[in-house]
């Protein structure tokens, strides 16, 4: 980023449109809630492959938790946001806001 004076660092894991959308979607769930992978995929309108790649990145960063389990005989994958992920998204949003303010742009 080259936004001039002491621009806040933007978390590179979140600062990619697709992963930002994943993070925002997960943050809208209640705390302690998990969403099934296919539902998340539909909410985001992503392909399963694409979403998997981004989730892996977010999991590596410790922002999301992926739980593989079974419902009856069918395997189901649930995704939830970790506390660390919530904090990271909060920081990211704050950083974006302060960028906007320091740019002196229209709110």
């Amino acid at each position: 980023m080259t936004s001039g004076d002491a621009a806040p660092e933007l978390d590179p894991v979140i600062h990619a449109q697709a992963r930002l959308r994943v993070m925002v979607t997960l943050s809208a769930l209640g705390e302690g809630d998990e969403i099934a992978f296919p539902s998340l995929k539909d909410l985001l309108g992503m392909t399963a492959g694409n979403l998997s790649v981004h989730l892996t990145k977010l999991e590596e960063a410790g922002y999301v938790r992926i739980t593989k389990t079974h419902r009856g005989r069918t395997p189901v994958t649930y995704v939830s946001m970790t506390t660390r992920g919530r904090l990271a998204l909060e920081d990211y949003t704050k950083a974006i806001r302060s960028l906007l303010d320091s740019a002196g742009g229209n709110p």
């Binding site: 990619a16 449109q17 930002l20 790649v53 981004h54 990145k57 949003t93 974006i96 806001r97 742009g105």
Partner: peptide, 17 residues
Amino acid sequence: TDDGERASSPEETLRLI
């Protein structure tokens, strides 16, 4: 380097959120 295109300006990013 990956396929997660960068979200562009701060305004746009906030709007996206």
